[in-house]
Nucleic acid binder design. Structure first.
Length: 262
DNA sequence: AGTGTGTCCTGTGTGC
DNA sequence: TGCACACAGGACACAC
């Protein structure tokens, strides 16, 4: 899509999770997509008009790539139901990009030139140099919230979700119930390292496919087979053989080993 | 500043 | 097989 103009934009409904921006189609058609990047869990398209289109897949969103310039080997392993085709981008080079999202937890937001966006004040990318033991420690300083909630807070570190927080805490041997501001220096150092490690391993495995997640080639990821604790309630801990527990924290499941994680 | 709850939706898996 | 129900990768609003 980079360097190519939007020839035709079709909206099959007035909203996803949020309503589409006013005059969405008119503001998109004819614009060239200058750069396509990612920040946290958001895709960002910079348009030649200077406006920015942010796209979030929510939990069930996916893009389908078709047309005469589509990657030859692009194909989803499970077909999408066309009744959830909500947005279609027809590019000037013949590529057709369709956004499909059964649950409609995803969204697209078109932000005017110079206007602020909700990503402006989020934390560092976990795989970047700005995220490390000392910066994590600084972000957690004085926090009374649980470390589980703190790591899901995008202002602390951007882009971690429920799965990888559970896995990183297990690898570090830290209970999800610990107060975030009371971790020791050695613990925040180790935690930052394990966060990077688990993300790198997951990316290497093509991501985690719980239901129908696909990576950017449309292929299923397989990191779910490498989970140590996520979704493994009642199974034995790989380290101590004790049972993996599940608790609910701020409405989300936390999986952990009560013996290894303190 | 925290925590907990509810909300937006549909699809899937489980248990009866 | 049919049905009811719990639960799901995220982010936000709101009450307390």
């Amino acid at each position: 899509m980079e360097g190519v103009r939007f020839a035709k934009v079709t909206l099959n409904r007035p909203d996803l999770r949020f309503p589409f921006a006013p005059n969405f189609i008119e503001r998109m058609e004819g614009q060239r997509l200058e750069r396509l990047t990612r920040r946290a869990k958001f895709l960002q398209a910079e348009l030649s008009s200077g406006e920015r289109l942010f796209m979030h897949l929510g939990m069930s969103g996916r893009f389908i790539i078709e047309g005469d310039t589509a990657l030859a080997d692009f194909a989803h392993e499970h077909a999408a139901n066309p009744k959830h085709h909500h947005v279609v981008f027809e590019m000037e080079n013949g590529a057709v990009i369709t956004y499909n999202d059964p649950r409609r937890f995803g969204f697209m937001e078109l932000i005017g030139v110079g206007a602020p966006y909700r990503l402006d004040n989020i934390g560092p990318e976990p795989l970047g140099n700005e995220f490390n033991g000392p910066t994590l420690r600084a972000a957690l300083k004085g926090k009374k919230s649980k470390i589980k909630a703190a790591l899901l807070d995008q202002r602390v570190v951007a882009g971690l979700g429920n799965i990888y927080v559970c896995e990183a805490l297990y690898r570090t041997g830290i209970s999800p119930r610990r107060a975030a501001g009371r971790l020791k220096v050695a613990e925040t150092d180790a935690l930052a390292g394990h966060i990077k490690d688990v993300l790198r391993a997951a990316i290497e495995a093509g991501g985690s496919s719980l239901k129908d997640f696909s990576n950017t080639d449309g292929k299923l990821g397989y990191f779910q087979h490498s989970f140590d604790v996520y979704g493994r309630e009642g199974e034995s801990c790989k380290n101590c053989n004790g049972p993996i527990k599940r608790i609910v924290q701020s409405g989300r499941s936390s999986f952990f080993c009560g013996v290894c994680q303190r």
